[in-house]
Design a protein around this nucleic acid. Structure first.
Lengths: 242, 242
DNA sequence: CGAATGTTTGACTGGAGTCAATGAGGGTGG
DNA sequence: CCACCCTCATTGACTCCAGTCAAACATTCG
């Protein structure tokens, strides 16, 4: 049995804009089903034009690109509430691939329904553009990190951001969060080598700022970690969810 | 006298989607005027919520962010046809600043009119989201460059991309293009130091791949440059223009 | 128990950063 | 007209952060 948008608890999290019953009903009509994929499954492929669009409901994944020489850049981590396939839906071609890191459940939408969905209410287009703008905003931050922060600053910044995103979407609190990714993934997200990432994490552990055991990360001193990462603690703005 | 959208030659360039007379008329109504700014003028500021939105008509500029320690990351170069202020218009807050590098002429729109403009035709929201998606797409590429390419690959990649963008918007051909930016700007865009950027450019010159004299860049061997930059030559897709 | 995957370390290397000085033009005020 | 200044490009010398290589550990799993 698939989740009814009406009862969906995800969209009620603090990170997301509240929705009117009409909006929920419209979204429900747009939703064609749910997809459950195992860890490791590729969901969208760079350069492709997927006939389906998704919203992550449960589980986590990665957006990434490969360079011709085999180097991988992780563009972003995928968390519940993230919309997948926007570029394909709009431009007709994905700029990156998406794969599931854990088992994931995804709401499925038909790309061909997108037009009628958006035509029904101008608010829809606004929200879709908003989602794209949020992603653009975040990529600008990430680019600044990879381009200008040192390894220590980058890793500290990443932990702060990850915690804030997960906290806002209700998947975490108390400075503890579930992180099913490998050091390799974090390294590829920050443009660092695996070895150097490992040693940098160790430094943060030695300074008693964080603990990372298994898939559980704990932040012990948030202000100090934020300072190390050259960032400030701000509550993320709410955004639409599709 | 301001340019009438009807006679605007910019939107007829190959890079942009053709527009119906009705669309042009709607855009004309949305446009409240033109703004001419001198080189060096700040147009939008990070964190602010500008009451105005712009489309670059003539001239070039930069999108950038500063880190607390004074490091600057150039997010992207601004060329004619680029829409400025999308994040402010949608999310209410810019994620980066924008400044004019040359004297620039900008079409001016009122943020408060955006809603009615988008309500008139669902196509509008689609286009706005499309623009955001294009930017997101490009930022993903840039992130991959900064994160994974070597300095030589990065600089080569940048020249190829710059040429392709300018060619598609009709500002260039024959591998020659106008580039009013400094080496400092390119360095900050690629996350490299000024000195190392300079030495890397020299390498490309020594290999007879490019020439950079004053504000004029010439690419002598496009295929070789693209190979050096680990990229392939593809015609950019057309996109909407506002 | 071996095989596979991921983490951790140490030793060494090298690409890119930093520092500093010199050039090369372009304005400008005397 | 020219000396002075300012900005930007260029170069050399040196440093160091981060990458590479390689091996040891730790866990999980069939």
């Amino acid at each position: 049995m698939t989740t009814k948008c009406d009862y969906c608890t995800l969209r009620r999290k603090a990170l997301f804009d509240p929705m009117s019953p009409e909006d929920v009903a419209a979204m429900q009509r747009f939703k064609v089903g749910e997809l459950v994929v195992d860890a490791g499954t590729q969901i969208l492929m760079e350069g492709s034009n997927s006939p389906q669009l998704y919203t992550a409901l449960y589980g986590m994944g990665l957006r990434y690109r490969y360079l011709e020489n085999g180097e991988r850049q992780v563009i972003n981590f995928v968390f519940p509430g993230d919309f997948l396939g926007l570029q394909a839906g709009l431009m007709g071609e994905m700029g990156h691939s998406v794969e599931a890191t854990t088992r994931m459940t995804l709401c499925v939408f038909k790309r061909s329904d997108l037009w009628s969905y958006m035509s029904a209410d101008p608010q829809r287009g606004f929200e879709l553009a908003w989602l794209a703008a949020v992603e653009e905003h975040f990529l600008g931050e990430t680019l600044t990190t990879v381009g200008q922060r040192t390894a220590l600053q980058s890793v500290a910044w990443a932990f702060v951001k990850l915690y804030q995103r997960l906290k806002a979407s209700g998947s975490s609190d108390d400075g503890v969060f579930h992180f099913p990714f490998k050091q390799r993934d974090l390294a590829d997200a920050l443009g660092l080598s695996l070895v150097h990432t490992n040693k940098t994490i160790r430094k943060l552990k030695e300074r008693q700022l964080i603990t990372w055991i298994g898939d559980r990360i704990t932040i012990h001193d948030m202000p100090a970690l934020a300072r190390t990462g050259l960032t400030t603690l701000v509550e993320p703005r709410t955004r639409p969810i599709m």
